[in-house]
């Protein structure tokens, strides 16, 4: 170690002597997410050009996302849908989606804790969603990391099951801050739980005052119509951009 400045071994030496003169500062001010955001921007443009509504579904593991998606696709009927499934391992979820007749691509992230925009771009290449269709991206079950990664979606939709408790939005605020809609799922279980629905709503709004919330049960169908209406409204909101081209 240098006795003058305390800098570590392996520093530049000139004629065998430690030398400080060449050190200089470079100001970068570079966004660390720029690479992901570049891919996300390309994905978003592609979705916009094709009139494709892309929704990024995020939640903890076990919130009921896949079952909710299966029911959603069934109820959307003739509307063209496709799905990108993200999981660390297995193709179980994509298999469940394909059973509805909707095309699905499974991304296995291995050790990865989230989908990123680059993976999604390749999945879209494989899936080739139809113009005017809806693309659901079911992210890896994880209420932390997927919040930070823009995939190019129109909206993040956070799914929270009532069994997870009222304080989840406060404990995992980033996800609720990033989402435009929260689906409070498994509402049919509320009579069996000591969970206050109003407190879930209040905690979620405290994190994100603009958040839309729908109380829903994929099992009984409660709230499903409101969710479908929300999807159709989001789709209509995209159309002016498509029509202008």
């Amino acid at each position: 170690m240098c006795g003058t400045c305390g800098c570590g071994e392996g520093q530049v030496q000139i004629d065998g002597k430690h030398h400080h003169g060449d050190a200089r500062e470079i100001v970068l001010e570079r966004d660390i997410m720029a690479k992901n955001d570049g891919y996300a921007t390309a994905n978003r443009q592609r979705f916009r050009d094709g009139g494709i509504l892309a929704l990024n579904l995020v939640s903890s593991p076990g919130s009921g996302k896949t079952f909710l998606l299966v029911k959603t696709i069934e109820m959307l009927g003739d509307m063209a849908c496709s799905v990108i499934e993200g999981d660390q391992q297995t193709s179980h979820d994509a298999d469940r989606i394909r059973a509805t007749g909707a095309p699905a691509v499974q991304i296995n992230t291995g050790k990865g804790c989230h989908l990123d925009a680059h993976m999604v771009g390749h999945a879209v290449d494989d899936l080739a969603p139809r113009s005017g269709s809806i693309l659901f991206i079911e992210n890896v079950g994880n209420l932390v990391c997927p919040a930070g990664f823009d995939l190019g979606e129109a909206h993040k939709v956070v799914v929270l099951s009532v069994t997870e408790g009222e304080d989840k939005p406060l404990k995992y605020p980033d996800m609720f801050a990033a989402a435009d809609l929260a689906l409070i799922n498994k509402a049919d279980l509320l009579p069996h739980l000591d969970v206050d629905m109003d407190r879930i709503v209040a905690n979620a709004r405290r994190i994100n005052p603009k958040l839309d919330l729908i109380r829903i049960s994929a099992r009984t169908g409660e709230g499903m119509q409101d969710w479908l209406d929300w999807i159709r409204a989001a789709q209509s909101a995209m159309r002016p951009a498509t029509a202008a081209e």
């Binding site: 520093q11 530049v12 060449d22 050190a23 200089r24 500062e25 470079i26 100001v27 970068l28 001010e29 570079r30 966004d31 660390i32 997410m33 930070g148």
Partner: peptide, 11 residues
């Protein structure tokens, strides 16, 4: 919520 590299000291 910024996340960036501000600057580097380089040789």
């Amino acid at each position: 919520d910024a996340l960036k590299i501000s600057k580097l000291e380089v040789v």
